[in-house]
């Protein structure tokens, strides 16, 4: 069974990611019975059918697809994937932050695609809490990528207070 990083450890995971093959359409693609992350287009088109069938399904957002499209559906989705088509495509960092900070999404946000050790710290800060590390990389080693820095300057999902507010608190305690 494939393994992912979740809750700061490597675990076995049963979720699949559905990608439309050539010739497949969101209208016609078969809905899998096993837990699967669906492309946004499939979800938007067939939401009622999916909900009625009671299938354990999530959605994955491609880098150019914002979370706005899911604003009304978040309660129904246990997992939302955010795709990184390339290591250097940073759009999904914004998607993850928006899901957490603007839409108060509390389910799992899973990084998909070109996911490697050296993005994990930034991903974690943006509210991503599960990481489908690229299959050809050593996922146990990649764990180290979550804890590169012991402090952070900016406010983000993991630390809503910027360092300058905490520095001030430290000074007051010290005084």
């Amino acid at each position: 069974m494939p393994r992912i990083i979740k809750h700061m450890q490597v675990i076995e995971d049963h979720w699949q990611m559905l990608t439309l093959a050539e010739g497949e359409t969101p209208e016609a693609v078969a809905l899998p019975a096993e837990p699967t992350l669906l492309p946004l287009a499939v979800w938007l088109l067939r939401r009622d059918e999916i909900v009625a069938a009671g299938l354990e399904l999530g959605v994955w957002l491609d880098a150019g697809e914002g979370p706005e499209a899911l604003a009304d559906d978040l309660e129904r989705l246990p997992v939302i994937g955010v795709n990184f088509p390339k290591f250097t495509d940073g759009r999904s960092y914004s998607s993850a932050r928006l899901l957490r900070e603007r839409y108060a999404y509390h389910g799992e946000i899973r990084a998909l695609g070109d996911v490697q050790q050296d993005q994990l710290f930034y991903m974690r800060r943006c509210g991503i809490d599960a990481y489908a590390v690229r299959a050809d990389k050593d996922i146990d080693k990649a764990l180290a990528g979550l804890a590169v820095f012991s402090e952070t300057y900016q406010a983000a999902v993991d630390q809503p207070q910027p360092l300058f507010r905490r520095r001030a608190a430290h000074r007051q305690e010290a005084a």
Partner: peptide
């Protein structure tokens, strides 16, 4: 400088 250093959302613009 401090705000932009290791900014998690804007490292891959």
């Amino acid at each position: 400088r401090q705000w932009s250093t290791f900014h998690p959302e804007f490292a891959f613009l």
